[in-house]
């Protein structure tokens, strides 16, 4: 600290506390809204203190849903989101590890060409090729399947680059020692490279789990069968699907449940999350 000014520090705390308050406020309001009875929202502006209907509201959205308001039960949707996030995270990490291993530890024809093919994925987000990608998935009969939800999203240049970078820092002596001991490439990969990469894998997992859980456009395109809906896209049907004013207490209970798992992942694995975020640069 350059100079010790109490007032400046006090002001900084004040700004931060106000700022954090504003950042947290929408979520606070959502939690509060999810604990009130439906009638509360007919009487004008919503209250700021919790109500007494939390258990009813949450059990209603999870187990029953409101089919009239475009809201099937979200228990299954939460499960689908979880499956999708896990499959995407694990799949991305697996194929990225393998391709980074190939690129760093082998010399072969067309290496640069393959590298560029992988790089291209960065430049083609789903949003810019919606219709033709949908057609491919439809032609492969993958609509309304977990495979269709996940496989097209598991190609990842960022994860491959992160692992490539990490493999480059692994000392050469490791490989020499392994070869002296007669280890083949896959044994080296499994017994030496993988254990060394645990932290990087975990950091990548945090980022990719959140990425998978928060997918929106893709499940929207690929699923028409309610049993494959994911929770993040399901909310949209509750908000804009109903003709009347949305059932806010149920919408907000769903919002809280949909946002909670990835938030918990970040809070409990903050260090890994920050590492994953800053080292992949995106």
């Amino acid at each position: 600290m350059v100079q010790n000014d109490r007032f400046g520090t006090f002001l900084a705390h004040l700004i931060l506390i106000l700022g954090v308050g504003i950042v947290v406020f929408p979520v606070y309001v959502a939690v509060i809204a999810s604990t009130h009875a439906p009638g509360t929202f007919l009487q004008g502006v919503m209250p700021l203190l919790p109500g007494s209907h939390a258990i009813e509201n949450y059990s209603e959205v999870i187990f029953q849903g409101r089919s009239t308001a475009g809201a099937p039960p979200i228990g299954l949707m939460l499960w689908n989101s979880f499956v999708m996030a896990m499959m995407i995270a694990v799949g991305k990490i697996a194929i990225s590890l393998l391709s980074a291993f190939a690129i760093v530890y082998f010399r072969f024809r067309f290496r640069i060409f393959f590298f560029w093919i992988i790089f291209i994925t960065l430049m083609l987000p789903v949003e810019v090729r919606i219709v033709p990608t949908f057609e491919v998935v439809a032609n492969l009969n993958l609509l309304n399947t977990y495979a269709g939800l996940t496989i097209p999203l598991i190609a990842s240049a960022t994860a491959t680059f992160l692992f490539r970078q990490f493999f480059m820092t692994v000392p050469e002596e490791m490989l020499e020692a392994a070869r002296v001991d007669g280890a083949g490439p896959m044994k080296f990969f499994k017994d030496i490279l993988l254990p060394l990469s645990v932290t990087n894998i975990a950091a990548m997992f945090v980022i990719m789990f959140i990425y998978g859980w928060n997918q929106y456009l893709w499940p929207l395109l690929i699923t028409s069968d309610e049993s494959y809906y994911t929770v993040v896209m399901g909310i949209q049907r509750m908000v804009t699907g109903a003709d009347s004013e949305p059932l806010w207490h149920l919408v907000m209970a769903t919002v809280v449940l949909a946002a909670l798992p990835p938030i918990l992942v970040i809070l409990f694995m903050q260090r890994l999350f920050v590492k994953g975020l800053t080292e992949t640069e995106k």
């Binding site: 697996a94 194929i95 990225s96 393998l98 391709s99 291993f101 190939a102 690129i103 082998f106 072969f108 290496r111 393959f114 093919i117 992988i118 291209i120 994925t121 083609l124 810019v128 090729r129 033709p132 990608t133 057609e135 491919v136 998935v137 496989i151 097209p152 598991i154 190609a155 491959t160 490439p185 896959m186």
Partner: peptide, 23 residues
């Protein structure tokens, strides 16, 4: 081996990225 290791990633990229983009 290197081609086999790259196969999953490259296949997915070609089928779900490059092909739709060229379409």
């Amino acid at each position: 081996l290197p081609y086999a290791l790259l196969a999953p990633q490259v296949l997915i990229t070609l089928v779900f990225f490059v092909w739709p983009a060229s379409q």
